[in-house]
């Protein structure tokens, strides 16, 4: 995974270099709200294999928490939605080249990304979480002794966070989700730190485990993103998110798409209505 990430970084660097060398690049890459409406189609980048946020069902239809919102955007704009299958690695690039109008792909807001794309109001919370066996539920990182180890997946936010903020904790690193899961089930470590959505889903699906720490570190949010400078579209999305708060749209979305994975207990902590202003 490391090398793939490096290769993609190289690719992006080269794309940037190419665009610097050739000055003939178009100034405006994006389509304004009016242009989208006039064309009758909006291109929305979503995940196609990240159940339950964005995936494709057995009939070839896009589904999931993000897609539910995308579909509503299409309806309220009065245009057809063209779903574009994106990857974590190319979401920014898609917006920077205007190949999609909006990205709705579990896109976490970070300062680095905000320099390249414009985020609209958030519609979901994410944080880190820690899951541990019921026999010894870890409710705070201070409960860990010097002998305890914590499982992380290499390259994740959880790894970075623990190295930075709790360097005294011994980490057990794995490359894949499956290996990390096996390690916890074999009792190789005291706990497993990952995105809270991941550990919540794990605890729900595997008996004998509890998420002792559902929210660790700073709370991040997930938001729609548009190309840098596309104000007309950005404003429309923000207005839309505020308006949808009136009908508790994202709670409905959660109950349709996420409740099977995360259960009702976490609905209020995960869902954001009206960009969080309604709270």
């Amino acid at each position: 995974m490391r090398t793939i990430r490096n290769i993609i970084a190289l690719a992006i660097a080269l794309v940037l270099a190419l665009s610097l060398v050739v000055t003939a690049s178009a100034d405006v890459v994006y389509r304004t709200l009016d242009e989208i409406k006039a064309s009758g189609t909006i291109n929305i980048g979503v995940f196609s294999d990240k159940n339950p946020f964005g995936y494709v069902d057995e009939n070839g239809e896009y589904q999931g928490y993000d897609v539910y919102f995308a579909r509503r955007i299409g309806e309220d704009l009065g245009v057809t939605v063209n779903y574009v299958s994106t990857e974590a690695a190319n979401r920014v690039e898609y917006l920077e080249t205007g190949k999609v109008d909006i990205v709705l792909a579990n896109f976490t807001v970070t300062p680095e990304r905000a320099e390249k794309v414009d985020f609209a109001l958030p519609y979901m919370n994410v944080a880190l979480g820690v899951v541990s066996p019921d026999s010894r539920v870890i409710k705070d990182l201070s409960e860990l002794t010097a002998d305890d180890q914590v499982i992380v997946i290499s390259g994740t936010t959880a790894e970075d966070y623990l190295i930075k903020n709790n360097p005294e904790i011994l980490l057990q690193k794995y490359d894949t989700y499956a290996n990390a899961k096996n390690a916890l089930e074999n009792g190789n470590a005291a706990a497993w730190a990952n995105d809270n959505t991941e550990v919540i889903a794990f605890a729900l699906q595997n008996e004998g485990y509890t998420v002792g720490i559902p929210s660790l570190g700073s709370q991040d949010t997930i938001a729609p993103a548009v190309s840098k400078g596309n104000e007309s579209l950005l404003n429309w999305i923000n207005d839309e998110i505020r308006a949808l708060a009136g009908e508790n749209f994202f709670h409905k979305d959660y109950e349709e798409t996420l409740v099977d994975t995360y259960g009702l207990d976490y609905e209020d902590s995960l869902v954001l209505e009206g960009g969080g202003l309604a709270e």
């Binding site: 993609i8 190289l10 080269l14 794309v15 060398v21």
Partner: peptide
């Protein structure tokens, strides 16, 4: 160049540099 890089260049790079779609 890894093929991945070439794909990125051809798909995104040409849009940035020449406005091709």
């Amino acid at each position: 160049m890894p093929q991945m890089v070439l794909l990125f260049l051809m798909y995104f790079g040409t849009t940035r540099a020449f406005g091709w779609n």
